[in-house]
Simulated scan of single mutants.
Amino acid sequence: MDWLQVILLSIVQGVTEFLPVSSSAHLILVSVLTDWDDQGLAFDVALHIGSLSAVVLYFRHELMRMAVSWSGSLVGRGVDGDARLAWWVVLATIPVCLVGLAFHDVIAVSMRSPLIIAFGLIVFGLLLAYADLRHRGTRDEYQLTLGDALLIGLAQALALIPGTSRSGITITAALLLGMSREGAARFSFLLSIPVIVLAGGLEIVGLIGKSHEVDWAAVLIGAILSGISAYLCIHYFLIFIKRVGMQPFVVYRLLLGGWLLWLFW
């Protein structure tokens, strides 16, 4: 890997992991539109570690409270708002795990074409536009119900379709359920933690027993750049949507999807 590839892939991963524009779509597009060699599983793991570190660091105070309260709920100390939120994150992660395990081969082989990405960007972008334009919700992540968590979890499973965007579809579902933009985004970011852990874990399993050279300098720089860009993305995205909303991301999705249709149809 050359350093331009390392820098570009790291920043793309860090920024698009949390924006509602589909990180998988952008990483696939980089490989389609360039002649770069595949970056390898070790580098992919590094990018996931960077993104994970960013979201954990950003929500460290909330995560600490959630962990303490959730642990207490397991030993009969009652369920407060933090414990309930932790349970909702766990439950909302189950659907994407089940669907991912059941259809992993189909998704990995048959659904990673530019045209599928284009349709995913456009269709789910229009749904995000509708959810954002009609939203009147004021609820935050602590006011979710069990039903809300399960519905958002089911929506998250759709993110396995390239072009959908995990953050995009979970924010869309949350807005439709009456959450505020900030509450929807914050819950989506919390949901990303177990998903990134599981995705990174699968990649680590894929590395076990395989002999290959690892460019440790690229791995280290990739993790750092991915983490920094992801942290900044989370911070400024929460500020941006409070003032502006989701429509600029919708426009971007539609333009990118239309360009892909023109290019590959």
Score class of each variant (00 low, 15 high):
Met1His: 14
Trp3Cys: 06
Trp3Asn: 14
Trp3His: 14
Gln5Phe: 13
Val6Glu: 08
Leu8Cys: 13
Val12Leu: 15
Gly14Lys: 08
Glu17Asn: 05
Phe18Ser: 04
Phe18Val: 05
Phe18Lys: 11
Ala25Met: 02
Ala25Cys: 00
His26Tyr: 09
Val30Cys: 03
Ser31Cys: 02
Asp37Leu: 09
Asp38Thr: 01
Phe43Ser: 08
Ala46Cys: 06
Leu47His: 12
Ile49Ala: 15
Ser51Gly: 04
Val55Met: 12
Val56Trp: 08
His61Glu: 15
Arg65Glu: 15
Met66Arg: 06
Ala67Ile: 11
Val68Lys: 15
Leu74Gln: 09
Arg77Thr: 13
Asp82Ser: 11
Ala83Val: 04
Leu85Val: 05
Val89Pro: 12
Val89Asp: 13
Val99Thr: 02
Gly100Val: 03
His104Val: 01
Val106Asp: 05
Ser113Ile: 00
Ile116Arg: 00
Ile117Arg: 10
Leu121Asn: 05
Arg136Phe: 06
Arg139Leu: 10
Tyr142Arg: 12
Gln143Phe: 05
Thr145Val: 02
Leu151Pro: 01
Ile152Arg: 04
Ile152Leu: 04
Gly153Lys: 10
Ala157Phe: 09
Leu158Thr: 00
Ile161Gln: 04
Arg166Gly: 05
Ile169Gln: 03
Thr170Glu: 08
Ala174Val: 07
Leu175Ser: 06
Leu176Tyr: 03
Met179Lys: 12
Glu182Val: 00
Arg186Trp: 04
Ser188Pro: 08
Pro194Cys: 02
Val195Ala: 14
Val195Asn: 07
Leu198His: 02
Leu202Arg: 10
Glu203Trp: 06
Val205Glu: 11
Leu207Trp: 07
His212Pro: 07
Glu213Leu: 10
Trp216Pro: 07
Ile221Thr: 15
Ile221Asn: 03
Gly222Asn: 14
Ile224Gln: 02
Ser229Met: 02
Ser229Arg: 07
Leu232Ile: 02
Cys233Met: 13
Phe240Ser: 02
Ile241Asn: 04
Ile241Leu: 07
Met246Ser: 01
Met246Gln: 07
Phe249Leu: 01
Phe249Ala: 00
Tyr252Ile: 09
Arg253Met: 01
Leu255His: 04
Gly258Ile: 00
Gly258Cys: 03
Leu260His: 00
Leu260Asn: 01
Leu263Pro: 00
Leu263Cys: 01
